[in-house]
Every structure is written in C-alpha cells, then in structure tokens.
Design a protein around this nucleic acid. Sequence first.
RNA 1: GUGAGCGUAGCUCAGUUGGUGGUAGCACCGGGUUGUGGCCUCGGAGGUCGUGGGUUCAAGUCCCAUCGUUCACCCCA
Length: 420
Amino acid sequence: MKIKAINGVKDTLPAEIIYWQNIENTARDIFHRFGIHEIRLPILEKTQLFTRSIGEATDIVEKEMYTFVDKKITMRPEITASLLRAYVEHGLHVQQPVQRLFSIGPVFRHERPQKGRQRQFHQVDVEIIGAQEPEIDAELMAMGQMLLSQLNLDVSLEINSLGCPECRPDFRKKLISYLQENHDTLCEDCKRRTEQNPLRALDCKQPGCKVAVKNAPSILDNLCSACEEHFAVVQKQLDLLGVAYTLNRFMVRGLDYYNRTTFEFLTTDLGAQAAVAAGGRYDGLVEQLGGPKNTPGIGFAMGMERMVLLMQQQEGQQEKQGQGGADIFIAALGKQAIEFAVPFVHQLRQLGLQAAMDYSNRSLKAQMKQSGRLNAGFTLIVGEQELEQGRGVLRNMKNQEQTEFSLQAGADELVSVITS
RNA sequence: GUGAGCGUAGCUCAGUUGGUGGUAGCACCGGGUUGUGGCCUCGGAGGUCGUGGGUUCAAGUCCCAUCGUUCACCCCA
C-alpha cells in the first residue's frame, strides 16, 4: 500500500517553488526597508501559551490545536504568541524599547481542509511591540499593502476598531440587549452567541442575521474618547500614506487578544476564503504573557498558501518564468568518455557553472534529448573519436552552431568560451 | 463536527440503456537519423478501473459499506 501525505498537508513541488521564493524574497526586502528583523521560533510550545493568549473559548483552542496531551505541548496554531513569548523570555524590550520583528513558517490547525485552507499552512508574521501610537498602526498596514501590491495581488483593506477594556464592556451590553430584542430573527448559532460572544454575531453570514445586525449599535459609535482619537488618527495617517481602505464595523477577530485597530486584506478570488492577511492591535497581551506592564503591540499574519493561489490565479495569461536551465551538458559516449567527463563536470561545477551529464552511456540522441530537457545552453559531445583527437564538439543549443573544443584546454577555458 | 460532489496510467480525461479483448492526449523509453535535442513519424512500457461486499448469465458502469479527495458550512491566514 502506497503511503500518502496525510489529509490537509501539501507538498510544494519544484515547479511552484518559484512563487514561494518570490514571496519570501519580496517580504524580506520590504521588511528590511521598514527596519523589521527576522526571528526564528520553535514550532512546538507549551499548550498553556496558546490557551492563555488566544483564549480558552475560541475555536482554535477548543477544537483545532494539535496537542500532545501527555506532554502538554502544542504545535503552534499561529505565530504571534510564540513571538511574544520569545520577546518576553529574552527581555528584548531592554535592548530596544520598540521591537520590530517578523517570522516565516508553518502553523497547524485541525480544520477540515478546503480551498485556501490546510491543516499545515504557512504564515508571514509581523509584529511591532512596544509602541502604541496610531501612526504605527497605519505604517504597518501601509507596509502590508506595499508587500501585497509588489506581489501583484489584488486585495482590498478593511479596518475596524474593537475598542478597549474601557469601552468595550459597555458596547457589549448594548449589543446583547439589541440581540435579545431581535432574538427571533437570529440563527441558532447567534442565539447561542448572544450571551457568550455577542460580537461574533456581527459577522455572521446567515442572511437573517445580516439583516438583524444591520441596525445593531455600532462599536464605532461607542468608543471611549481615547479609542476614538486613536482610530481617527489611524484613518488620517492611512489617508496621508495614500492607503485605500474601507470601514467595516462588522469585522470581528477570532482571537481574544485583539483590541482597538483590527484589519484584514481581502480578496474575492479564493472561494470562501476572503482573508489573505489579517491582524490588529493587542495592547494587553504582552503583560498577560508575563512581560512588562503596559506593553502595547500590533501585528498581522499573511497566509502564504492563499497568496500563492492568488498569484497563480491572477497571473492568468502571463508567461511562466522559465526555470533557469543548465549552463552545459556533457554528452559522454562510451566508458572512456564517461571517465573523462566525470571529473570535468566536477571542475565546471567548482568554477560555478551548472553542469550536468548522464552516467548511463545512452545513445547520443537520448543524451541530446536530456540536454534539451535540462534547457542547457550548450552541450559538449565527447565520444571515442573526440577523445582520440582531443577535440570535443561544442554545440550551442540555442542557435545550433557547433564548434570544436580542445579537451586539453581544461574547464576554465570552456567556462570562458561559453560565458563570452 | 456537519453536508454535497468526485475516485479509470505519473498528469488531464473517454468509456454510450450493465454486454467480446479496459480509451486518448501529455509525459517517459526506443526506432526512423553507424553519433546530434525541440517538429514529424512508427513502436514500446506503464492500470489491483480507490477498497470490500452485494445484485446479475454478465459490473469501470447499478446498490451498500469503507477509505481517500474536493468544495461548502462552522471558523479562520
């Protein structure tokens, strides 16, 4: 019986690796410009880290984590918590009051896979810790926008504010009583949510709930003055930076730790999965994880699989980037020729060329075919005759011109011939 | 966890109301060219028709179960 990959994970084959490298290279380039430094983190963490940060009652913690129960260890379902753990553990705030960090890697959630959703997927995660100014919020979103548009991804930005411990409780009460008044028009889930997680009813997709919620009190009308001021500046800064956005007072985040600014970069091209990147502010989280008091923070995560899907899809007619081919292929005919070619290919590689050969002593036709398949620039044909005469046939695969090449001249001479 | 669709070669897929030997294209290998790739041409290899049971004289085709997978719900990157 063949062993296959488990449900919800995917192999990334060489043919599509170009997309991943493109994302990573572009991200690193842009993060560099914004002074955001890389941090590498473990995939395994104590289960407690996530139950404490993401929230006991969230779906992620309740039913989606891969946990080794006996060891109380969990495969991370997101990166933010790990990154903040490292920030606190190493006292990074002492070195630099505002830390700008990013990390790229896999995360794990036990959900049913579907388009744009896997059980192991990959995130580009960015966090700015230690700054509470609204300019930071806008800068981060502007950077996200820059990165996504550099990758030619067509997305829209939606923003909202979730208030803070000052103002959210009051809003929550208002919302609960509104939902209770409209109890009959809500779906079963939202009836249940009314008490437990009323905010979640705001982004319910059921038509009935959408209508019911339309006239619900708006969080944006119920912010305390500090939050209102903060959010106003965020918007003003986005305008200054030329970042287009729309307000979405129904946007709610699935993780408990968010407060104030939240945002999502959305697409309509990924089936049911709209969010390509999402994040927000989490001003109480660092302290909650045992870090210094009153340490604000904000960050976002981008879903790499979703970006790749979009790139492949939106690429459309554009021609595929040709994988760089080999510089040269040595077609060796006969045992002696192979003995000559083996060290010769090795020397070419030492000199920096991508050189290839075939050890199986196949027909010249087969080897030429192989050379063509490798998209080689040149093929050096070495058979018995050539060995005797000390002159190989060097074929330019692009224009089909053939010249003689003295085998005694050595690898460096060949390099200079084919690179000239 | 729930629902629907789909499982025929490495990939994309034909396969008619169940009725003789399992299609084709791409890719792979070889010949046509004593030693020259892409195009053409001829040939070759490659399959437990996901698996197990059932109905039938006869099942890739119908039924059931099971596994896998896709999409959607829930929720999320």
